[in-house]
Nucleic acid binder design. Structure first.
Length: 380
DNA sequence: TCCTCTAACACTTTTGAATCGC
DNA sequence: AGCGATTCAAAAGTGTTAGAGG
């Protein structure tokens, strides 16, 4: 499920290349009683230290590290929608020059991006707090004509994921619902179509099980496709990683959970990625979840008309996030009213970023005027 | 010439259905 | 019949590379 979000130009964003947002404390942010933690914060920090790169492809590529968060402080009996989007970190385009990233000019105009709505949304607070929330299946693409609902980004630009916790009984009502926004400085990344920094490549191979094909017995380690290249350093270092690799993964022991557990028993010294084992695959986030499919708008990523772009929001001033605001009326006036979550009247216009300059740069708390008296913001 | 992007490649992991044993 | 464990095949996902294109 995906939808358009407003202009991401956050007045509090850093417009220099080396000034990240204030770091979140131990990968956790707190707003009032709601606390959001970045579960795999250490992994993100490891990448961030080197300079995280995310590959984007025409057909969509998953993130690695992927975003994995945990929530606490929600009302167990209230429904929430959890969403993730990407905001530009600055206004520059970058290029990789030998050993470091350098500015290569002004950023491209932002494409019509989408917000990734967690497939379990909406679900009760108890459901979200039961276990960590993974955005593993969110995909990034550089295809501005993408029809699969992937998050559209520009290559060679820097972005930061944001997480939105929206109190809503259904995606139809999130527009006028209280919501809070979280982001973490360690999750900033540079988009690429091919990895530039070989240190990042090494980190990915070390932590991403899908990369094992190239680490253990892959073509590059068998000489089939090994050849000198413009990135020969990468090739040699990658081969070295292959030579250094330890116990081979349990081929033949398949069967999802049982195979995984069995494999772990049989090969306790194997290198199993944390993101595989941290989460118990038997714990699915399906219980207590409203069945969106039955309601006709599905749990899957959904497209929204491409007619609305960020640009429309560049002129939007901060207003109370009311469904009756002028901005909303203007933006939605020619939207077709079809029963799709992404095209619900007012749905696009949820002012996720219109009023960021009133909030802490990394933790934002938004409430409709009528409910603000009940909210307290504690920016960490 | 340089830089960026794409498709193909060979491999691993994930997923879901089928099968087996208790 | 029901349940859990195991097996199998297909689909999905991975990083690297050469080559195309600007």
């Amino acid at each position: 499920m995906s939808l358009l979000v407003p202009d991401h130009q956050d007045p509090h964003q850093n417009h220099t290349t080396d000034k990240p947002m204030p770091p979140s404390k131990a990968g956790t942010q707190e707003q009032g009683i709601i606390k959001l933690s970045l579960v795999n914060s250490d992994l993100w920090k490891a990448f961030h230290t080197t300079g995280t790169e995310m590959v984007i492809t025409k057909h969509g590529r998953r993130m690695f590290p992927h975003c994995n968060i945990s929530l606490s402080g929600l009302d167990p009996l209230t429904n929430y929608v959890i969403m993730m989007d990407m905001v530009p970190v600055d206004q520059f385009k970058y290029k990789w020059n030998k050993e470091e990233w350098e500015v290569a000019g002004k950023a491209e105009p932002q494409p019509p991006a989408h917000t990734y709505v967690h497939p379990d949304s909406p679900a009760m607070g108890s459901h979200w707090m039961k276990q960590s929330i993974s955005f593993l299946k969110a995909k990034l693409t550089n295809n501005t004509l993408d029809q699969h609902g992937h998050i559209i980004l520009h290559s060679m630009h820097r972005y930061s994921p944001r997480f939105h916790v929206v109190q809503a009984d259904s995606p139809y009502t999130i527009h006028w619902s209280p919501y809070q926004t979280f982001s973490f400085s360690e999750t900033h990344f540079t988009t690429v179509t091919a990895y530039q920094n070989n240190k990042i490549t090494k980190l990915k191979i070390d932590h991403n099980p899908f990369a094992k094909g190239f680490r253990e017995g892959g073509p590059h380690f068998q000489g089939k496709r090994c050849r000198p290249s413009k990135t020969s350093n990468n090739a040699e270092e990658t081969r070295q990683i292959g030579r250094d690799a330890g116990c081979k993964s349990p081929s033949g022991l398949q069967g999802s959970l049982s195979a995984l557990k069995s494999a772990k028993r049989h090969c306790p010294n194997s290198h199993f990625s944390p993101w595989l084992l941290d989460q118990d695959p038997t714990e699915s986030l399906n219980t207590d979840t409203l069945d969106l499919s039955r309601q006709g708008y599905g749990c899957e990523e959904q497209m929204v008309p491409a007619s609305m772009t960020y640009q429309a929001y560049r002129f939007a001033e901060h207003k109370t996030p009311s469904p009756y605001s002028d901005i909303d009326n203007r933006l939605c006036s020619d939207e077709p009213h079809v029963p799709d979550v992404a095209t619900v009247p007012g749905y696009h216009s949820h002012p996720f970023s219109q009023d960021m300059h009133h909030q802490h740069p990394t933790a934002h708390h938004h409430m409709p005027a009528s409910r603000q008296h009940t909210a307290s913001t504690v920016a960490t």
